[in-house]
Design a protein around this nucleic acid. Structure first.
Lengths: 133, 133
DNA sequence: TTAGATGCAAAAGATTTGCATTATG
DNA sequence: CATAATGCAAATCTTTTGCATCTAA
């Protein structure tokens, strides 16, 4: 927590109670704003969704977490990993899991085949989880 | 057009004037609903956005077109290609371009590394187009 | 003490739904 | 002519903005 406080302070941000709770509820499993609020509710903590949105935006800015879009158009957030990775989402129950892949070759190919200066990418998989198939 | 009519008919759908116009305005360059409406407006054709949404949904169902989500959370639609491909989006102006890539190896790796039964994927790149960098 | 953070209400933007009217096959 | 499709209004859903109040440093 001390580390986060420093990182926030570097941008003039403060480490408040809601921010501590929101950070504590984050995970390596991607979660939506609604899921985070539910999680907090179970701990009897009530934080307005606007605060959650704003806090997550700050965390993304500080690269403490990563934001991803899924088919359903809602954003999901997870603790930033040092190692870049990807997701699989279950088409039935919506569960999201991480996958580690080495896509160096693919990026190289993309850079060759495009007139754009490529800076980042999103790679997501869809299918059925163990339970659902 | 005759082909489309057949494909629509197979599902009990009709080939109406709005549907013909919407289909004609589609492209291999991904477009949003708003962009399609603008395009039609330039040809002095007024079609309600609801109709555009519903028509595109039918076309997606018939696999005549493909829908993709971008960072901005809006859906873009393009003519379905026989060959699977991907996109690069300019971070500044939002322009979207296609990229062709062979990602067989990547898919294989994903299938190995996941407990999910993988069925599809989305791969999108982001960067700067020629004009913007 | 004072700038930044919170929570409520309300706005915004993309997409969907309900329903009466119109038009295709 | 029967049923599907259209267009308008209104609803929905996620996310953002405005503003008065509160609080961390």
């Amino acid at each position: 927590m001390v580390e986060i406080k420093k990182q926030l302070a570097a941008k003039g941000y403060r480490l408040t109670k809601p921010r501590q709770e929101i950070f504590a509820s984050l995970d390596h499993e991607p979660q939506s704003v609604l899921q985070i609020i539910e999680k907090l509710k179970k701990k009897n903590i009530k934080i307005d969704k606007v605060t959650v949105y704003r806090t997550l935006a700050s965390f993304v800015e500080l690269k403490l977490i990563e934001e991803t879009q899924f088919k359903n158009k809602i954003s999901v957030y997870e603790l930033a990993d040092h190692q870049h990775h990807h997701h699989v989402q279950c088409e039935k129950c919506g569960k999201i899991e991480d996958i580690c892949l080495d896509e160096k070759l693919l990026i190289q190919a993309a850079k060759k085949n495009s007139s754009f200066q490529i800076k980042s990418h999103h790679l997501e998989f869809f299918g059925l989880c163990k339970k659902c198939h």
